[in-house]
């Protein structure tokens, strides 16, 4: 049963991240997603300190705000201090992450987080934290409910505002011209990324969130030319990575999060080579066909 719980949690994280990741990579904001996933750490620690628990709404809100603050800071350093974008991203997230780690060390007694868990989570402990109803029934691990809620929220968000997200991603100038605010959707999407990062943090850690935001979406991008299918394929490849990753970790007796990231990478590598539409082999074959055509 435990492995099922872990796989379900990982799959929920992977699906949610996969959906958002599609928009991130199409907006060329993959590294901003990376930055946010690191930068929410101090928010999580502070929320921990103030609320005293790890599953409160305060924590989501607080860390979500830090996520927006990150986006804002990156833009501030870029526009007001005229720092080039790449450096502005690098400076902002490393600083916030460092603050987060130091806070953890300072309040080691009060905050139930450790540095390693920050990086690669403790998804193996998911089945230990279960919800038991008043009448004594065990309804499964809490993490599944938390991630499930976030997944549904993000799903509803994307379905309800698909049109706006699609347009502001593809052609921001046109969107603005017809009165759809690109800034608003930018910040909403970043809030969604922050919320997802926070919710996934303790199960999979900062780096795996990044891997799941980017790798499945990039994999899907090499397979399809249709945004809706891209999201579906990203979700599926996230789930496949979760399942294979889990068993890889069990086999090697290593970190589950690390193994899932590894599998997401392997899946991407396979797609890169064998994708029927944009894979390297297919391109080679195509090129051969074209070059042999005149002789037919």
């Amino acid at each position: 049963m435990n492995d099922i719980y872990i796989i379900i949690t990982a799959s929920l994280v992977a699906t949610t991240c996969g959906l958002l990741g599609c928009f991130l990579i199409l907006r060329k904001m993959a590294m901003v997603g990376d930055a946010i996933s690191h930068a929410v750490l101090p928010g999580i620690v502070l929320a921990f300190l103030f609320s005293g628990s790890r599953d409160s709404v305060t924590m989501l809100l607080g860390a979500g705000l830090i996520g927006i603050l990150t986006t804002f800071l990156i833009e501030f350093f870029h526009k007001k201090a005229r720092l080039q974008t790449d450096a502005s991203i690098g400076v902002t997230f490393t600083w916030l992450f460092a603050v987060g780690v130091v806070l953890i060390s300072l309040f080691a007694g009060k905050v139930d987080l450790d540095q390693d868990c920050v990086l690669y989570g403790e998804i193996a402990y998911v089945p230990l934290d279960i919800i038991i109803l008043d009448n004594g029934t065990n309804i499964g691990p809490k993490a599944i409910y938390v991630m499930g809620t976030i997944f549904l929220l993000i799903l509803v968000f994307i379905i309800a505002f698909y049109k706006e997200l699609f347009l502001t991603t593809f052609d921001p100038a046109f969107a603005n011209a017809i009165g759809i605010s690109t800034a608003l959707w930018h910040y909403l999407l970043m809030s969604a990324v922050s919320a997802t990062t926070v919710a996934s943090f303790e199960s999979v850690g900062a780096i795996l969130v990044v891997a799941l935001l980017i790798a499945p979406a990039a994999t899907a991008y090499l397979i399809t030319d249709n945004l809706k299918w891209m999201m579906v394929i990203a979700a599926i490849s996230g789930i496949i990575s979760s399942i294979t990753g889990y068993y890889l970790a069990v086999w090697l007796d290593g970190s589950i999060a690390g193994a899932i990231a590894t599998c997401a990478g392997i899946l991407f590598g396979l797609t890169l080579v064998f994708s029927p539409t944009h894979g390297l082999v297919f391109k080679k074959i195509n090129a051969l066909e074209v070059s042999t055509k005149p002789s037919n």
């Binding site: 199409l26 593809f170 052609d171 100038a173 046109f174 011209a177 017809i178 030319d225 249709n226 945004l227």
Partner: peptide
């Protein structure tokens, strides 16, 4: 706003975007 239309420069968007002609 509803009465104006805009055709941006062709190069201003990413034509690798996963979308069909009808979507656009």
């Amino acid at each position: 706003r509803k009465r104006i239309s805009y055709v941006p420069q062709r190069e201003s968007v990413d034509w690798d975007f996963p979308a069909s002609v009808l979507d656009i």
